[in-house]
Design a protein around this nucleic acid. Sequence first.
DNA 1: TTGCGTGCAAAGGTTTTGCATGGCA
DNA 2: TGCCATGCAAAACCTTTGCACGCAA
Lengths: 141, 141
Amino acid sequence: MSNTNGYKTKQREAILNYLVENKNSHVTVGKISDFLEGTGNHVGVTTIYRHLDKLLEQGLVKKYTVDGTTSACFQYSGDEEKCNCHYHLKCEKCGKLIHMNCSRISELCSHIMRSHGFAVDLCRTVFYGVCQDCKEKTEVN
Amino acid sequence: MSNTNGYKTKQREAILNYLVENKNSHVTVGKISDFLEGTGNHVGVTTIYRHLDKLLEQGLVKKYTVDGTTSACFQYSGDEEKCNCHYHLKCEKCGKLIHMNCSRISELCSHIMRSHGFAVDLCRTVFYGVCQDCKEKTEVN
DNA sequence: TTGCGTGCAAAGGTTTTGCATGGCA
DNA sequence: TGCCATGCAAAACCTTTGCACGCAA
């Protein structure tokens, strides 16, 4: 089941490297493309989309969308579901996306599962609100 | 603070009616447009987008992206006051939107506020996952 | 050599913007 | 009458598809 990876190419290597290096945040096709362009290794967006699709099927990356953005976000999740202790906070003022690890959130998910029978997919869930910086700025006014 | 609703127009009325009638499922701009077209009341998509944006700001509708679809989904969620003491679970299998009251969620929000300095807006936040019914169906297979 | 991988260009969608017109208050 | 609301057309994006060429095995 492991080696349906196809050919080993420069492009595949470069995309995967970038995803793994940024496994703690999310990337878009645009970001990947720009980064690779910057390193001098141009890779067509078509190729990026196709590799992401494949990785998605294999479960190696997660796909989600954040409100206010138009393009899809991808995040390397590796072989395991590390994503379960990791969630996203999105500031509606400045647009910042915060990635956060916190045991409380896993506890809540367990509770929702046990008591309400609902299996939360944290990876796809985004908490919207206002971050500390923006809150302080607002209070000053 | 309540009546920043702007003018009362036929278009606004028609869109809001449709949203309320379909409060148990989610709709897309295309669906709204098609439905209104069918009733003989044509409303431009631009207008639909603009009203949805406004309703979103007011917390009267929720916006989602559902896996595998290209366009955004909207769902009427009701009065803003009610929203602040409960949260929303969206089943990705059947599309059901579950409103849930649970003290644990307020606790989590307080914790995020205290420890991480982030003010969660529950009104805008949706938990994605799989509901009990759909989970059971999957397990049967 | 074979067949998948790549990238360009074009197509297909969704959403936003500019601008003139329409309609509520 | 003064503004906001509306809707068309066009623009701006994101994503997918077709096709010819490149390259790994």
